[in-house]
């Protein structure tokens, strides 16, 4: 892995789809669609999440929609089930999303347990995942950082596991890197950290642990300069990935090791 050109072939592969970028980005919380598109362009993300909601029927028909700014033929859409608290709601939402996107079946499943913490209800998540996978969806699944649940979700056929770093929108970064490491070490599908990233170093740490990618929304959208933060996140993920592939030096907590020679000291 010492070849400097090894990164050219270091693609993120999810359910047979290949991507250059390991940064997945949400489209919520921006001030307008123009900012959304500018931030996503700066991030060079290829996968964007969207929510599925009732169309505003009173809206002016000439008003542009999100899809006008982010054409589905240029970006890979990842419809989510934000706001769903039961497996039935999540399944219904994703079936509607598939119809909306002309049969596109790569989706992000999240079933929430509580509106204050937005913590996932992993039991309902597992139930929904089984039904969706049987219905032909490629399911990327938002979950807790419980390694047993992560493995169960992989075993039932989820194409990517997306453990939270911390609560959605909290910006608290990775609260339990050790659990995340256990999940990564035991996974045979991509592990993509989703939720809680706050700044660039959070994303870099995730990649240095060996994550295959990072999904974020608030960290970019609510930065003081969202476009600059999107650019920072792109670099953060690239540098974390290179550091991971390069193989870090070992930590030596109790002993120093000089970088300069100890021979031929001037006396």
């Amino acid at each position: 892995m010492g070849d400097k050109n090894s990164n050219i072939n270091d693609k993120l592969v999810i359910a047979g789809r290949s991507f250059h970028s390991r940064l997945l980005i949400g489209t919520g919380k921006y001030s307008d669609f123009k900012e959304t598109r500018s931030a996503i362009d700066a991030s060079e993300s290829e996968i964007v999440t969207v929510a599925i909601r009732r169309i505003n029927l009173g809206q002016n028909i000439d008003e542009p929609s999100l899809l006008d700014f982010l054409p589905p033929n240029k970006f890979t859409y990842l419809p989510n089930t934000a706001g769903c608290y039961s497996s039935e709601e999540a399944i219904r939402t994703l079936r509607l999303a598939r119809e909306l996107l002309d049969g596109h079946n790569l989706v992000k499943l999240e079933v929430l347990g509580d509106p204050n913490t937005l913590y996932p209800n992993v039991v309902e998540t597992i139930n929904a995942a089984k039904i969706l996978i049987a219905d032909g969806f490629d399911v990327m699944v938002y979950t807790s950082d419980d390694p047993i649940v992560a493995k169960q979700l992989e075993d039932i056929g989820c194409c990517a596991i997306m453990p939270l770093a911390s609560l959605i929108g909290s910006g608290m970064g990775i609260l339990n890197p050790w659990n995340l490491q256990i999940i990564i070490d035991n996974a045979n599908v991509p592990v993509i950290v989703d939720a809680g990233v706050g700044t660039a170093s959070d994303a870099t740490i995730a990649m240095e642990l060996g994550c295959d990618g990072v999904l974020m929304n608030t960290a970019v959208a609510l930065a003081k300069n969202s476009i600059l933060m999107a650019s920072a996140m792109k670099k953060a993920i690239e540098s974390g990935r290179e550091a991971f592939i390069a193989g870090r030096m070992p930590k030596k907590p109790y002993m120093a090791s000089p970088s300069s020679p100890v021979e031929d000291l001037i006396k």
């Binding site: 921006y30 999440t49 929510a51």
Partner: peptide, 25 residues
Amino acid sequence: SKNFLEGVYFNEGDKIEIIGAVGGG
């Protein structure tokens, strides 16, 4: 299905949902 819009009828009391994609994380 979008292919069957001409063949499906709505009647009194039907509950219809029309959805789209919006910004979200």
